[in-house]
């Protein structure tokens, strides 16, 4: 018997060892979140979209924001620039935003107020503030850093017919949520659902990717909703005319074009 065990045991160990790589093929929670942020916020070298936002209150009243969004990645370090031009509503038509986003420090942000032809620099210590009154924060729009949160792999499960990794992320500094649970597509790396919990661990906001389409090489969330389950408000966002790698130049993301929209792209 003894000799047999001597054979079986190593075999079992070998089997275990052989199956281990299959398990290790699942990337770490950090890698999953990193790939998800890359897929969601960094796809392509540049991007253009016409973005329609509907801000809906609990009574069902709707306010709309209609904008063109341009984005460019500057180098591989995670630096990005965003340009947003408001086509509507009428009272803010022509207003534009410029954001220079850095991986490890606060963004530089400017707003152009067309009635005064005024470019104003704005204090940018508000990553967690609402973007134009919606249920999305500035950070939801332009992304966060993988290092801002600690990530833990929870499980794998199917969500909406897609295989997903379920990850829990806890912010390292005190912000408006205490933890976030994400369902991340195992193949396309896009977040399909996110739940944000408040300091008392009660569900606060829920993000859902309502429509995912392939645009050129890149899987893209073209319709999304953020619902604040505590206030009853929600915001629906639709991306139309999405284009990647169209050759946007960095100089578009400067004060000159804040004042005079680049008509080739802003339409």
């Amino acid at each position: 018997m003894k000799p047999r065990w001597r054979i079986v045991l190593p075999l079992l160990v070998a089997l275990a060892a052989a199956s281990a790589p299959a398990h290790a093929a699942d990337p770490s929670a950090n890698e999953i979140v990193k790939r998800s942020l890359d897929a969601f916020y960094f796809a392509g070298n540049d991007m253009r979209a016409r973005v329609q936002m509907k801000l809906v209150n609990p009574e069902g009243q709707v306010r709309e924001r209609d904008m063109t969004m341009l984005r460019i990645n500057v180098g591989a370090s995670g630096e990005q620039r965003y340009y947003m031009y408001f086509h509507g509503p009428a009272d803010v038509k022509g207003t534009s935003f410029l954001v220079w986003k850095y991986p490890n420090r606060d963004s530089d942000r400017w707003i152009y107020i067309p009635a005064l032809h005024l470019v104003k620099r704005i204090a940018a210590d508000d990553k967690r503030s609402s973007f134009v009154g919606s249920d999305f924060t500035y950070e939801d729009v332009s992304g966060r850093n993988v290092g801002d949160e600690n990530h833990v792999f929870l499980r794998k499960e199917e969500f909406g017919g897609r295989p997903t990794y379920v990850i829990e992320s806890k912010p390292k500094t005190v912000v408006d949520y205490s933890r976030r649970v994400s369902w991340i597509d195992q193949e396309r790396w896009l977040p399909l659902k996110e739940e944000y919990y408040d300091a008392g661990n009660k569900l606060l906001r829920v993000f859902t990717a309502d429509k995912v389409e392939q645009v050129g090489k890149y899987w893209t969330v073209t319709a999304r909703t953020m619902k604040n389950v505590q206030s009853g408000y929600h915001t629906e966002v639709v991306f139309q005319q999405v284009q990647y790698d169209i050759g946007l130049k960095p100089d578009i993301f400067t004060e000159r074009y804040l004042r005079n929209p680049p008509t080739q792209w802003v339409r």
Binding site: D106, D108, R121, A123, A124
Partner: peptide
């Protein structure tokens, strides 16, 4: 004008 300590100095 530029950023200083999470604000804007002019």
């Amino acid at each position: 004008t530029g950023p200083v300590a999470k604000g804007v100095l002019s």
